[in-house]
Nucleic acid binder design. Structure first.
Lengths: 115, 115
DNA sequence: GCAATATATACCGTCAAACGAATGTAGTGT
DNA sequence: ACACTACATTCGTTTGACGGTATATATTGC
């Protein structure tokens, strides 16, 4: 994966927030990511498709739901980039409370699962 | 600095290559970056201006030359992102030989300086 | 078959980023 | 003053990304 392609993917707030949520929670379905980010469902779906085409995430269907996760074969340096970003976001950022929004989602299809 | 702003800056090959060269060599002037990347001088200058406005690099003039460096007050997480990228680039990437191109530049205004 | 939910895709308008090329500015030396 | 080098800026154009909206597909249950 070319560095510039990774960074182009991370340059969009919705995509980055989804990736950071996946990094923290391990596996989430589209409706959970939609709720946590507050974005519209078609947007989340399109952004996740981009991340999938880039090899950043993998998906698996389970009934009605499609669960996404950080791609298990993600290059180490790319994972380090994500982790460094997560550390910076924890300190000061508008994305810091996405996890809280997720926790308050009613009718969550999945119990919390950690990486 | 917002994560998405950093990643937007890193999503351009010329900007990323300049940053990685500065990370490795400490301080370089525009003509050195122009030579190492093979880009046109106005492009390099414009991209460096963007990086400066974002707070990613700082500059200082010395005679005819303007030397750029990674901004000394760069947030730790952003520096980690750059270092992780440098590690990934060393393994496999089209930017890996920028440093060699720089070393072969004739009439380099500065002796090699390391961070 | 139908209905309902979750997800994906298609179409369109808009706006920002990037490039090429030309020009402008700053500093040095004569 | 001039010439030369290094660097910066401007302009015009084009391309691609994004959001909004509507619609399509997939799966489950009746």
């Amino acid at each position: 994966m070319r560095p510039t392609d990774l960074f182009a993917a991370l340059a969009n707030a919705t995509r980055l927030r989804c990736l950071l949520l996946l990094l923290r929670h391990g596996e989430l379905c589209v409706c959970e990511l939609t709720h946590a980010t507050g974005a519209l469902q078609p947007h989340v779906s399109r952004h996740l498709a981009q991340l999938r085409e880039l090899g950043l995430v993998s998906d698996r269907r389970e009934g009605l739901w499609v669960y996404y996760r950080i791609h298990p074969a993600l290059p180490a340096w790319a994972l380090h980039v994500l982790e460094a970003t997560a550390a910076g976001v924890r300190a000061q950022s508008p994305f810091a409370d996405d996890a809280e929004a997720l926790a308050q989602m009613p009718n969550r299809p999945s119990a919390p699962r950690c990486a």
